[in-house]
Design a protein around this nucleic acid. Structure first.
Length: 499
RNA sequence: GCCCCGGUCGUCUAGCGGUUAGGACAUCGCCCUUUCACGGCGAAGGUCGCGGGUUCGAAUCCCGUCCGGGGUACCA
């Protein structure tokens, strides 16, 4: 039975690279019907950020990454907050101390800074020089009795190599003498990540650790820790980082990197999950569009690539469009409306489209709004685009595109066209798409036009103000006679007097 | 500086000793069509970072080198 974990620290809102690590772990658990646990690594109280925990859980929930054990859910291996496990770490530090696999270090931060400075200047490998490691028991006791604060450090092997098998990269080896004696317990009595992570992974029965590449350098310290306790190690897999377009690790500088930003911008969770999984992982065949369960079925650690990938927003956009197109009208309505009412995106909130949609939802029949969404569905790449794309359906006087007017309303027949259409539409209670087509064709004949496109384009501009959009006939069917009449009359004002 | 990881079209990737180096996004063209989009078809785009080996044969194995990234905390 495999057990994996996602162990974020609540120091900020998780970004997409971080959340992808959670996804990989989750997929592995799903693949083998294992257990996915979420553990909060809050051992650095000074870096705790309010709201971060909520954002972590929110990000997971949004993407559909459900955890079997962890915050809000509990489980048999709790507590799932490291801040509630302090006693456990202390107990384990004592074990290490008693076995001489760790020691107390009384060096002050100032001394350490000075030491590193010296090392840097002399081009020596930086690291703790172990000056406290060989103190006698009496000496340590005296120092401790004097009330001098201390940390506990791991006694690393002085020579030889430390190696481990990485499931993605194969054998990774480090020279022991280059590794320093990592702090395990800080002077405030709290553990560092290194200690807490190893103790918890062991106690919580974690079998596979998929984590970011940035951990690969501290893995030998973890290996020594496992050995010092006499524990078996989990399988390590270090996933590559996600880079920004400039090749550097994805960060705030690259704009939106917060996972939840994508939700606010109008991305669908299924698109984001699908897309980020594909940075660094592939099912081994040529599939790209995959649901969560399809990905889980195809997932393997071996399918993770060792080299970092660039986050290509263009491809995400394409994928988002795909998932928008795949929605049923009902689902689409629910999705767009609930996104619209909850998004915090300021640019969207302040847009005219947003205001028009809000009004439409309140005053127009749901069927009307649903149909408007359906007609724009294949053109839209973001949820946030529906409001603007559908605006002409919702407002009485859509903006007239000057270029569209210039291009089509200069035709000598346009005045007559609009009049004839008005005459045809007047008196009807409804118009179907078929009716609309017959009306247009009839007008084409009576005006002696060569192609119906000559009638269609000006009519589109008259009714929507735009030169592009859904099928004119379908759009007329949705608008209905009353709106069409109003718009036809208004459009007449834009026709140059000469015609 | 030192250590570690990585390097296949612009981007995401398949590939794991013998392939015309395949797919996807983006780009361009054609088709469909009332426009835009969707969809379909096609094109262009890769000296597999570079240089040496090993081998009958190397994107695939080895060494070197260059470039990029990551780590070098009483942060995770």
């Amino acid at each position: 039975m495999i057990r994996v974990r996602y162990a974020p620290s609540p120091t900020g809102s998780p970004h997409v690279g971080n959340i992808r690590t959670a996804l990989f772990n989750y997929l592995l658990a799903k693949r083998y019907s294992g257990t996915f646990v979420v553990r909060i690594e809050d051992t650095d109280q000074t870096r705790k950020v309010p709201g971060a925990l909520e954002d972590i859980l929110d990000s997971l929930r949004w993407l559909g990454i459900e955890w079997d054990e962890g915050p809000e859910r509990g489980g048999s291996h709790g507590p799932y907050f490291q801040s509630e496990r302090l006693e456990i770490y202390r107990r384990h530090v004592d074990i290490l101390l008693a076995a001489k696999r760790a020691y107390k270090c009384f060096c002050t931060p100032e001394e350490l800074t000075e030491m590193r400075e010296y090392q840097r200047i002399n081009n020596l490998p930086t690291g703790y020089d172990r000056r406290c490691r060989f103190r006698s028991d009496d000496e340590v006791e005296a120092l401790e009795a004097s009330g001098k604060p201390y940390v506990v450090r791991l006694a690393m092997p002085l020579e030889g190599e430390i190696e481990f098998q990485d499931a993605i990269r194969g054998r990774v080896a480090f020279e022991s003498r280059l590794l320093d004696d990592q702090v395990l317990l800080k002077s405030d009595g709290w553990p560092t990540y290194h200690l807490a992570n190893v103790v918890d992974d062991y106690l919580q029965g974690i079998t596979h650790v998929i984590r970011g590449d940035e951990w690969i350098n501290s893995t030998p310290k973890h290996v020594v820790l496992y050995n010092s306790f006499g524990w078996n190690m989990p399988i390590f897999a270090h996933a590559p980082i996600i880079k920004g377009p400039d090749g550097a690790k994805l960060s705030k500088r690259h704009g939106d990197t917060r996972c939840l930003d994508y939700r606010e911008k109008g991305f669908l969770s299924e698109a984001v999950a699908n897309f980020i999984a594909l940075i660094g992982w592939s099912p081994g065949d040529e599939r790209e569009l995959m649901t969560m369960s399809e990905m889980a079925e195809a997932f393997s650690v071996e399918g993770i690539q060792p080299n970092p990938g660039v986050f290509d927003i263009t491809k995400l956009l394409w994928m988002n469009g795909h998932y928008i197109r795949s929605k049923s009208p009902e689902d689409l309505f629910d999705t767009v409306v609930s996104w619209h009412t909850s998004t915090t995106d300021e640019e969207y909130r302040g847009s005219e489209g947003c205001a028009a949609l809000t009004a439409a939802i309140q005053s127009l029949p749901q069927e009307y709004v649903t149909e408007a969404f359906r007609l724009e569905q294949e053109r839209v790449k973001l949820l946030s685009e529906f409001a603007e794309a559908c605006r002409f359906f919702f407002v009485d006087e859509p903006e007239m595109d000057p270029q569209g007017v210039a291009k089509w309303f200069g035709q000598p027949y346009v005045g007559a066209l609009l009049e004839k259409l008005e005459a045809e539409v007047a008196g009807r209670s409804t118009i179907s798409a078929e009716d609309a087509e017959k009306i247009i064709d009839g007008v084409v004949v009576s005006l002696g036009l060569e192609k119906r496109a000559q009638a269609i384009h000006p009519t589109r501009v008259a009714l929507t103000g735009k030169t592009f959009g859904p099928s004119l006939f379908e759009l007329m069917a949705l608008l209905g006679p009353e709106r069409i009449l109003l718009r036809l009359r208004r459009a007449a004002q834009f026709v140059p007097a000469a015609s």
